[in-house]
Design a protein around this nucleic acid. Structure first.
Lengths: 244, 244
DNA sequence: CGGATCGTTGAGTTGTATCAAGACGGGTGG
DNA sequence: CCACCCGTCTTGATACAACTCAACGATCCG
């Protein structure tokens, strides 16, 4: 039985911020409207002025931007518990689009309800602020990879990150997780061409670092993949790592 | 006569968020310790746990990350009024380093004083949160450029961004501003080699888009440079653009 | 007037893109 | 239950953006 939307949100916030019972209670009473969505659907688009935030409950979503030439850059993937457009709480006009990658379950929360919650619980404000800061930290790390690492290493890094983030919400075990993401989407995320992603994945498999069967990915050599990806989880700012 | 540190902070926050008289008053009383720094000095480093934030008052600073191979990616430049490590207010361990690019004047503000200010003025919390969200938005835009635009266009984009941001704090006029940044640093920012940056700058000059003399840069054809850089200022979320 | 830093230029190399075509595989309809 | 089809994955060949290396020129400064 999957956790409720509210439980998921609490669990996610607690992975980066300690909550009191009172705060957990307040969060559990937050009204969340649950919907399901097909793959490859825009949830919000550049220029939108949403009056609600969207929490991912099941599946994968991404944030992307398009260039004038029509090229797409995926700047973030989300795992269940993430709030892809939390920024819209304070930036009225969206500067990016959010789309489903796989089939998804989504939970919508009115801005008004969140503002109200923040006013009554300043520490929840801090927790949400912190969540947006972790997002920003991930942007910095991805930018460093795209600018200064080669495609092979970026791919390794992305797999490391997904493994750790999915583990944090209980969706990866023994280095195995479901990744319903096409190679074209991976390419848009690491700033490479789909063809090159294909070759890089073959290299990673050939080097014995990963294995994949359908959408299932297994990390065979965690230390090796971390080394290949130059991966240090510090930037994820997870509580369990003690770098709150 | 340059503005005081507090005045600068107020002016900067107001460029993205409206403040009341009372809030301006509170900000003007914030204790800020002013210091000067030479170029190329680290202000804070990866792994630090600072107890204060640093506001840039005069000069240029940058945020950078290093890869295992020793390559550097600059993920952000700052202009006076920016607070490069505002994130440290909620992320205890820094995941990046901040360094001066030119000679700088810096203002240090204790976390305690900021937390106190935020507790007394929830709207200042919102303003500062918003500031970190704009930073994140700039990261997304840079990532899109590095991943999906060519070096020529990235360079044009960076110059557009700096022009707009410097204008917002009164440091650019008629498309002319001081840019005390070496080509090597520009290269680290757009994810290119110094040699290539040199060539791309020559191209921009040859195309009649910019001119430079020493550290002074002049934009000769604003519309042309915007087009070359695929630049849309929406992502800077400036109030004057009406996309608060 | 050295000496250091930064900018410029040329030549050769490489990572990665693009193009094109074929193989696979999971759904759908006959 | 098979045949087909569409999206995805895979492979090979070619092209190009950008890197590296190396040297030289320009500036600034003590």
């Amino acid at each position: 039985m999957p956790p409720s939307a509210n439980t998921l949100m609490i669990r996610k916030l607690e992975s980066i911020f300690p909550l009191s019972n009172e705060e957990r209670q307040a969060l559990s009473e937050l009204p969340i409207q649950v919907m399901v969505s097909k793959p490859d659907q825009d949830i919000v688009r550049v220029g939108d002025r949403p009056s609600q935030c969207c929490m991912l409950i099941r599946g994968f979503t991404c944030v992307y931007k398009l260039t004038a030439e029509g090229k797409r850059q995926i700047v973030a993937f989300h795992v269940p518990g993430d709030i892809p457009d939390l920024q819209s709480l304070h930036l009225k006009v969206l500067d990016n689009s959010v789309a489903t990658v796989s089939a998804c379950t989504l939970g919508f929360i009115q801005h008004e309800a969140l503002h109200d919650l923040c006013n009554r619980h300043p520490r929840i404000t801090a927790a949400l602020w912190r969540e947006t800061l972790v997002d920003a930290s991930i942007f910095r790390e991805w930018m460093t990879g795209i600018g200064r690492r080669e495609a092979y290493n970026r791919m390794a890094h992305l797999l490391c990150e997904l493994k750790v983030r999915l583990e944090a919400v209980g969706l990866a075990e023994d280095g195995t997780f479901d990744l319903p993401v096409t190679q074209t989407e991976l390419a848009d995320a690491i700033g490479a061409s789909p063809v090159h992603v294909n070759r890089v994945l073959q290299e990673l498999r050939g080097d014995g670092l990963i294995r994949s069967k359908g959408t299932q990915v297994s990390i065979l050599e965690w230390e090796g993949l971390k080394a290949a990806g130059d991966f240090d989880p510090l930037y994820l700012h997870l509580r369990k790592d003690g770098n709150a």
